[in-house]
Amino acid sequence: MAEKIIMLACSAGMSTSLLVSKMQKAAEADGLDYKIFATSSADIDHQLAADPHPDVLMLGPQVRYMANDVKKKTDKVGIPMDIINMSDYGMMNGEKVLQAARALLNDK
């Protein structure tokens, strides 16, 4: 089982798929055993109720309008949530997004 689970959520879960693979490569290069996956924003509730649920949720910039509602849900289950930096997302910078997720996990 992975040490940490990072969930990325966007409109359909498709645009974050490339970012997931880049983050996974960065995690492996750093010797981290992380499960990183992308899903649609419609699947957030299901994933938060799953066992095990994600340790951190990163929202794609295109669904930033959902941040307040999603934050309430992640607070209920006790996991950190943030919006992926638009520049890092646009450049598909897996290393930077991984660093942001690790900062939320206090796993620097």
Rank of each mutant, 00 (worst) to 15 (best):
T39V: 13
M91S: 12
K4E: 07
M58W: 01
S40P: 07
G60E: 05
S15H: 02
R64V: 04
A2H: 13
Y65T: 10
L57K: 07
N68W: 08
K73C: 02
K71P: 01
K4I: 04
S40I: 06
D43L: 12
K22S: 01
V70I: 10
I79H: 02
L32D: 06
I6S: 03
K22A: 00
R102D: 07
G60D: 05
Q62W: 11
I36A: 03
G90W: 14
V20T: 01
P54D: 09
L57D: 05
K96Y: 07
M92R: 13
M23I: 01
L105K: 13
R64H: 09
E28H: 08
M14I: 12
K4V: 05
G90Y: 15
R102M: 10
M81L: 14
D45R: 13
S41K: 15
I84S: 06
V63A: 05
Q47E: 12
M92P: 05
P80D: 03
E28L: 07
I79K: 00
M86K: 09
A42V: 13
A29S: 06
K25A: 11
M92S: 11
I36R: 05
D51F: 14
N93A: 13
S40C: 08
G31F: 04
Y89K: 06
M1G: 12
E28V: 07
K71G: 04
H46W: 15
H53G: 08
N106H: 15
A12R: 07
G13R: 01
M7H: 09
N85Q: 05
D55R: 10
L18R: 07
M81Y: 15
K72A: 13
G60Q: 06
S40Q: 09
N106G: 13
A27G: 03
N85C: 02
A42L: 14
I6E: 01
M14L: 12
G13W: 05
F37D: 02
K35P: 04
K108P: 08
D33P: 12
D30K: 15
N68I: 06
S41F: 15
M1V: 11
S17G: 12
C10E: 05
M86C: 03
K4T: 04
I6F: 03
A29Q: 09
V70R: 04
D45S: 14
V70E: 00
N85L: 02
